[in-house]
Protein backbone atom coordinates (compact mmCIF):
# COMPACT_ATOMS: atom_id res chain seq x y z
CA UNK A 1 0.00 0.00 0.00
CA UNK A 2 2.71 2.42 0.95
CA UNK A 3 4.60 1.81 -2.24
CA UNK A 4 1.63 3.05 -4.18
CA UNK A 5 1.71 6.35 -2.40
CA UNK A 6 3.52 9.05 -4.27
CA UNK A 7 6.04 10.80 -2.08
CA UNK A 8 7.80 13.89 -3.38
CA UNK A 9 9.77 12.90 -6.45
CA UNK A 10 13.14 13.56 -4.98
CA UNK A 11 12.43 11.16 -2.12
CA UNK A 12 13.05 8.35 -4.54
CA UNK A 13 16.69 9.19 -4.95
CA UNK A 14 19.01 6.62 -3.59
CA UNK A 15 21.39 8.83 -1.70
CA UNK A 16 19.75 10.22 1.39
CA UNK A 17 20.42 13.83 2.16
CA UNK A 18 19.70 15.88 5.21
CA UNK A 19 16.82 17.63 3.48
CA UNK A 20 15.00 14.36 2.97
CA UNK A 21 14.96 13.38 6.61
CA UNK A 22 11.48 14.76 7.30
CA UNK A 23 9.54 13.06 4.51
CA UNK A 24 11.44 9.87 5.07
CA UNK A 25 10.56 9.77 8.73
CA UNK A 26 6.98 10.56 7.83
CA UNK A 27 7.01 7.70 5.38
CA UNK A 28 8.35 5.31 8.02
CA UNK A 29 5.63 6.39 10.42
CA UNK A 30 2.99 5.70 7.81
CA UNK A 31 4.55 2.31 7.20
CA UNK A 32 4.27 1.33 10.84
CA UNK A 33 0.77 2.70 10.95
CA UNK A 34 -0.22 0.51 8.02
CA UNK A 35 1.41 -2.52 9.61
CA UNK A 36 -0.35 -1.94 12.90
CA UNK A 37 -3.64 -1.31 11.14
CA UNK A 38 -3.33 -4.55 9.22
CA UNK A 39 -2.25 -6.51 12.25
CA UNK A 40 -5.52 -5.88 14.09
CA UNK A 41 -7.80 -7.84 11.74
CA UNK A 42 -5.16 -10.48 11.03
CA UNK A 43 -4.52 -11.11 14.71
CA UNK A 44 -8.22 -11.34 15.43
CA UNK A 45 -8.73 -15.03 14.55
CA UNK A 46 -5.65 -16.07 16.49
CA UNK A 47 -6.47 -14.04 19.56
CA UNK A 48 -9.98 -15.41 19.39
CA UNK A 49 -8.58 -18.94 19.30
CA UNK A 50 -6.31 -18.29 22.27
CA UNK A 51 -8.94 -16.67 24.43
CA UNK A 52 -11.37 -19.50 23.62
CA UNK A 53 -8.70 -22.06 24.46
CA UNK A 54 -8.44 -20.58 27.95
CA UNK A 55 -12.15 -20.23 28.61
CA UNK A 56 -14.89 -22.39 29.99
CA UNK A 57 -17.48 -23.35 27.40
CA UNK A 58 -20.05 -21.11 29.03
CA UNK A 59 -17.91 -18.01 28.86
CA UNK A 60 -16.84 -18.73 25.30
CA UNK A 61 -20.32 -18.07 23.95
CA UNK A 62 -21.47 -15.18 26.10
CA UNK A 63 -23.02 -12.37 24.08
CA UNK A 64 -21.62 -9.82 23.69
CA UNK A 65 -18.33 -11.72 23.66
CA UNK A 66 -15.72 -11.39 26.36
CA UNK A 67 -11.99 -11.21 25.71
CA UNK A 68 -10.40 -11.98 29.05
CA UNK A 69 -10.89 -15.53 30.31
CA UNK A 70 -12.25 -15.69 33.81
CA UNK A 71 -11.13 -17.93 35.24
CA UNK A 72 -8.16 -18.88 33.08
CA UNK A 73 -8.96 -22.45 32.22
CA UNK A 74 -5.42 -23.77 31.81
CA UNK A 75 -6.75 -27.26 32.39
CA UNK A 76 -8.22 -27.14 28.86
CA UNK A 77 -4.71 -27.66 27.55
CA UNK A 78 -3.62 -30.39 29.94
CA UNK A 79 -6.88 -32.28 29.68
CA UNK A 80 -7.26 -31.94 25.92
CA UNK A 81 -3.74 -33.10 25.25
CA UNK A 82 -4.06 -36.09 27.57
CA UNK A 83 -7.56 -37.06 26.46
CA UNK A 84 -5.96 -38.65 23.40
CA UNK A 85 -2.49 -39.91 22.56
CA UNK A 86 -1.47 -36.61 21.02
CA UNK A 87 2.23 -37.33 21.29
CA UNK A 88 1.79 -40.39 19.11
CA UNK A 89 -0.35 -38.43 16.67
CA UNK A 90 2.32 -35.74 16.61
CA UNK A 91 5.06 -38.22 15.73
CA UNK A 92 2.91 -39.76 13.00
CA UNK A 93 2.11 -36.37 11.55
CA UNK A 94 5.74 -35.26 11.57
CA UNK A 95 6.80 -38.44 9.76
CA UNK A 96 4.20 -37.96 7.05
CA UNK A 97 4.93 -34.24 6.72
CA UNK A 98 8.70 -34.62 6.47
CA UNK A 99 8.56 -37.40 3.88
CA UNK A 100 6.06 -35.36 1.86
CA UNK A 101 8.03 -32.13 2.01
CA UNK A 102 11.30 -33.72 0.89
CA UNK A 103 9.62 -35.60 -1.95
CA UNK A 104 7.62 -32.63 -3.11
CA UNK A 105 10.48 -30.16 -3.11
CA UNK A 106 12.83 -32.50 -4.95
CA UNK A 107 10.54 -33.87 -7.63
CA UNK A 108 8.55 -30.69 -8.20
CA UNK A 109 11.60 -28.54 -8.72
CA UNK A 110 13.16 -31.06 -11.09
CA UNK A 111 9.95 -31.16 -13.11
CA UNK A 112 9.58 -27.39 -13.04
CA UNK A 113 13.12 -27.04 -14.36
CA UNK A 114 12.28 -29.30 -17.26
CA UNK A 115 9.03 -27.45 -17.99
CA UNK A 116 10.64 -24.03 -17.90
CA UNK A 117 14.24 -24.24 -19.03
CA UNK A 118 14.65 -27.28 -21.23
CA UNK A 119 13.25 -27.55 -24.73
CA UNK A 120 11.60 -30.79 -25.74
CA UNK A 121 8.77 -31.69 -28.01
CA UNK A 122 5.41 -32.07 -26.29
CA UNK A 123 6.56 -30.10 -23.28
CA UNK A 124 3.71 -27.62 -23.19
CA UNK A 125 1.11 -30.26 -23.92
CA UNK A 126 2.45 -32.43 -21.12
CA UNK A 127 2.37 -29.47 -18.78
CA UNK A 128 -1.22 -28.63 -19.70
CA UNK A 129 -2.32 -32.23 -19.16
CA UNK A 130 -0.59 -32.28 -15.79
CA UNK A 131 -2.27 -29.06 -14.79
CA UNK A 132 -5.69 -30.41 -15.74
CA UNK A 133 -5.39 -32.87 -12.87
CA UNK A 134 -6.30 -30.17 -10.36
CA UNK A 135 -9.30 -28.99 -12.30
CA UNK A 136 -11.53 -31.96 -11.59
CA UNK A 137 -13.18 -31.78 -8.14
CA UNK A 138 -11.58 -34.39 -5.92
CA UNK A 139 -14.94 -35.63 -4.67
CA UNK A 140 -15.37 -37.82 -7.73
CA UNK A 141 -11.83 -39.19 -7.91
CA UNK A 142 -11.69 -39.97 -4.23
CA UNK A 143 -13.35 -43.37 -4.43
CA UNK A 144 -11.38 -44.64 -7.45
CA UNK A 145 -8.20 -43.47 -5.74
CA UNK A 146 -9.18 -45.25 -2.57
CA UNK A 147 -9.91 -48.45 -4.47
CA UNK A 148 -6.57 -48.17 -6.25
CA UNK A 149 -4.67 -48.02 -2.95
CA UNK A 150 -6.69 -50.90 -1.66
CA UNK A 151 -5.80 -53.01 -4.71
CA UNK A 152 -2.18 -52.18 -4.05
CA UNK A 153 -2.54 -53.36 -0.46
CA UNK A 154 -1.53 -49.99 0.91
CA UNK A 155 -4.51 -49.26 3.13
CA UNK A 156 -3.79 -48.53 6.76
CA UNK A 157 -0.22 -47.49 5.96
CA UNK A 158 1.38 -44.11 5.37
CA UNK A 159 2.04 -45.03 1.73
CA UNK A 160 -1.03 -43.31 0.20
CA UNK A 161 -0.22 -40.23 2.25
CA UNK A 162 3.44 -39.95 1.33
CA UNK A 163 4.37 -41.77 -1.87
CA UNK A 164 2.44 -39.51 -4.29
CA UNK A 165 4.50 -36.56 -3.13
CA UNK A 166 7.57 -38.28 -4.57
CA UNK A 167 5.89 -38.15 -7.97
CA UNK A 168 5.54 -34.38 -8.21
CA UNK A 169 2.54 -34.43 -10.43
CA UNK A 170 0.24 -36.38 -8.17
CA UNK A 171 -2.75 -34.40 -6.98
CA UNK A 172 -2.29 -30.87 -5.74
CA UNK A 173 1.47 -31.15 -6.23
CA UNK A 174 1.03 -29.84 -9.74
CA UNK A 175 0.44 -26.41 -8.30
CA UNK A 176 3.99 -26.56 -6.95
CA UNK A 177 5.42 -27.49 -10.33
CA UNK A 178 3.53 -24.57 -11.83
CA UNK A 179 4.70 -22.20 -9.10
CA UNK A 180 8.35 -23.17 -9.45
CA UNK A 181 8.08 -22.98 -13.23
CA UNK A 182 6.88 -19.38 -12.95
CA UNK A 183 9.84 -18.50 -10.73
CA UNK A 184 12.37 -20.33 -12.86
CA UNK A 185 11.15 -18.39 -15.89
CA UNK A 186 12.26 -15.14 -14.30
CA UNK A 187 15.90 -16.22 -14.04
CA UNK A 188 18.03 -14.96 -16.96
CA UNK A 189 18.70 -17.66 -19.51
CA UNK A 190 22.19 -16.35 -20.26
CA UNK A 191 23.27 -18.16 -17.12
CA UNK A 192 22.26 -21.51 -18.57
CA UNK A 193 23.78 -20.78 -21.95
CA UNK A 194 27.08 -19.87 -20.38
CA UNK A 195 27.14 -23.04 -18.31
CA UNK A 196 26.28 -25.22 -21.29
CA UNK A 197 29.11 -23.69 -23.28
CA UNK A 198 31.36 -24.68 -20.38
CA UNK A 199 30.10 -28.23 -20.86
CA UNK A 200 27.70 -28.41 -17.92
CA UNK A 201 24.83 -30.89 -17.91
CA UNK A 202 21.26 -29.74 -17.38
CA UNK A 203 21.36 -31.35 -13.95
CA UNK A 204 24.35 -29.20 -13.04
CA UNK A 205 22.60 -26.09 -14.28
CA UNK A 206 19.57 -27.04 -12.25
CA UNK A 207 21.45 -27.84 -9.09
CA UNK A 208 24.14 -25.16 -9.06
CA UNK A 209 22.43 -22.24 -10.78
CA UNK A 210 18.65 -22.41 -10.76
CA UNK A 211 18.06 -23.95 -7.36
CA UNK A 212 20.29 -21.57 -5.35
CA UNK A 213 18.62 -18.63 -7.08
CA UNK A 214 15.15 -19.90 -6.24
CA UNK A 215 15.34 -20.20 -2.47
CA UNK A 216 12.27 -18.05 -1.81
CA UNK A 217 10.15 -20.20 -4.11
CA UNK A 218 11.50 -23.41 -2.61
CA UNK A 219 10.65 -22.07 0.82
CA UNK A 220 7.12 -21.32 -0.32
CA UNK A 221 6.69 -24.90 -1.53
CA UNK A 222 8.14 -26.21 1.72
CA UNK A 223 5.79 -24.14 3.84
CA UNK A 224 2.72 -24.99 1.77
CA UNK A 225 3.45 -28.70 1.65
CA UNK A 226 4.22 -28.92 5.33
CA UNK A 227 1.09 -27.06 6.35
CA UNK A 228 -1.03 -28.93 3.84
CA UNK A 229 0.10 -32.29 5.18
CA UNK A 230 -0.12 -31.10 8.77
CA UNK A 231 -3.76 -30.10 8.40
CA UNK A 232 -4.84 -32.82 5.98
CA UNK A 233 -7.88 -34.51 7.38
CA UNK A 234 -9.51 -36.45 4.58
CA UNK A 235 -6.40 -38.39 3.55
CA UNK A 236 -5.61 -39.84 6.98
CA UNK A 237 -9.30 -40.41 7.63
CA UNK A 238 -9.71 -42.47 4.49
CA UNK A 239 -6.50 -44.43 4.48
CA UNK A 240 -5.83 -45.08 8.16
CA UNK A 241 -7.89 -47.46 10.26
CA UNK A 242 -5.63 -48.24 13.16
CA UNK A 243 -5.71 -45.55 15.82
CA UNK A 244 -2.01 -46.12 16.42
CA UNK A 245 -1.45 -44.45 13.07
CA UNK A 246 -3.85 -41.55 13.44
CA UNK A 247 -2.69 -37.98 12.89
CA UNK A 248 -3.23 -34.70 14.74
CA UNK A 249 -6.11 -33.60 12.56
CA UNK A 250 -8.00 -36.82 13.30
CA UNK A 251 -7.36 -36.23 16.99
CA UNK A 252 -8.76 -32.72 16.75
CA UNK A 253 -11.89 -33.93 15.00
CA UNK A 254 -12.74 -36.22 17.90
CA UNK A 255 -13.50 -33.23 20.07
CA UNK A 256 -16.38 -32.43 17.78
CA UNK A 257 -19.24 -34.74 17.20
CA UNK A 258 -22.86 -34.50 16.30
CA UNK A 259 -23.94 -34.83 19.90
CA UNK A 260 -21.33 -32.94 21.76
CA UNK A 261 -18.56 -30.55 21.00
CA UNK A 262 -15.98 -30.13 23.71
CA UNK A 263 -15.26 -26.54 22.82
CA UNK A 264 -12.64 -25.81 25.42
CA UNK A 265 -10.66 -28.91 24.49
CA UNK A 266 -11.13 -28.32 20.78
CA UNK A 267 -9.81 -24.77 20.98
CA UNK A 268 -6.92 -25.65 23.28
CA UNK A 269 -5.85 -28.60 21.17
CA UNK A 270 -6.18 -26.53 17.98
CA UNK A 271 -3.93 -23.86 19.42
CA UNK A 272 -1.37 -26.47 20.43
CA UNK A 273 -1.52 -28.19 17.04
CA UNK A 274 -0.81 -25.04 15.04
CA UNK A 275 2.03 -23.88 17.30
CA UNK A 276 4.68 -25.89 15.40
CA UNK A 277 3.61 -24.57 12.02
CA UNK A 278 3.65 -21.00 13.29
CA UNK A 279 7.20 -21.57 14.47
CA UNK A 280 8.11 -23.12 11.13
CA UNK A 281 6.83 -20.10 9.26
CA UNK A 282 8.59 -17.73 11.62
CA UNK A 283 11.93 -19.38 10.92
CA UNK A 284 11.49 -19.91 7.21
CA UNK A 285 10.21 -16.46 6.30
CA UNK A 286 13.78 -15.14 6.63
CA UNK A 287 14.43 -16.48 3.14
CA UNK A 288 12.11 -13.84 1.75
CA UNK A 289 14.90 -11.34 1.70
CA UNK A 290 15.90 -9.29 -1.22
CA UNK A 291 19.26 -10.28 -2.55
CA UNK A 292 18.93 -13.98 -2.01
CA UNK A 293 18.09 -14.40 -5.66
CA UNK A 294 19.79 -12.06 -7.98
CA UNK A 295 22.62 -10.28 -6.22
CA UNK A 296 25.25 -12.60 -7.57
CA UNK A 297 24.10 -12.20 -11.13
CA UNK A 298 24.40 -8.50 -11.65
CA UNK A 299 28.15 -8.49 -12.02
Amino acid sequence: MTAVRTPPRRAGRVAPTAGLRGPRRFRKALLYLALAGGAVPTLLPFVWLLRSALMQDTQMFVAPPEWIPSPFQWSNFTEALTAQPFWLYFVNTVIIAVISVVGTVLTCSVAAFSFSRLRWRGRNVAFAVLLSGVMLPYAVTLIPTFVMWQELGALDTFVPLTVPSWFAGAGGGVFNVFLLRQFFLTIPFELDEAAYIDGASPWRVFWTIVMPLSKPAIVVVTIFTFIGTWNDFLGPLLYLNDEEKYTLSLGLASFQSIYLTQWGYLMAASAAVIAPIIALFFFLQRYFIEGVTLTGIKN
Binding site: R119, R123, T145, G171, W203
Partner: peptide
Protein backbone atom coordinates in the same frame (compact mmCIF):
# COMPACT_ATOMS: atom_id res chain seq x y z
CA UNK B 1 19.42 -33.42 -28.06
CA UNK B 2 20.73 -33.14 -24.53
CA UNK B 3 17.88 -30.87 -23.52
CA UNK B 4 15.34 -33.26 -24.95
CA UNK B 5 16.85 -36.24 -23.18
CA UNK B 6 17.18 -34.48 -19.84
CA UNK B 7 13.88 -32.72 -20.25
CA UNK B 8 11.97 -35.96 -20.51
CA UNK B 9 13.99 -37.53 -17.73
CA UNK B 10 13.45 -34.66 -15.33
CA UNK B 11 9.76 -34.41 -16.08
CA UNK B 12 9.38 -38.15 -15.65
CA UNK B 13 8.43 -38.22 -11.95
CA UNK B 14 5.69 -35.71 -12.58
CA UNK B 15 4.45 -37.51 -15.68
CA UNK B 16 4.56 -40.88 -13.97
CA UNK B 17 2.77 -39.41 -10.98
CA UNK B 18 0.02 -38.19 -13.23
CA UNK B 19 -0.25 -41.47 -15.11
CA UNK B 20 -0.21 -43.61 -11.97
CA UNK B 21 -2.16 -41.61 -9.42
CA UNK B 22 -4.26 -39.08 -11.28
CA UNK B 23 -5.17 -40.35 -14.74
CA UNK B 24 -6.79 -43.61 -13.64
CA UNK B 25 -9.23 -42.07 -11.17
CA UNK B 26 -9.98 -39.29 -13.67
Amino acid sequence: RMERRWGLLMALPAILGFVIFTAGPM
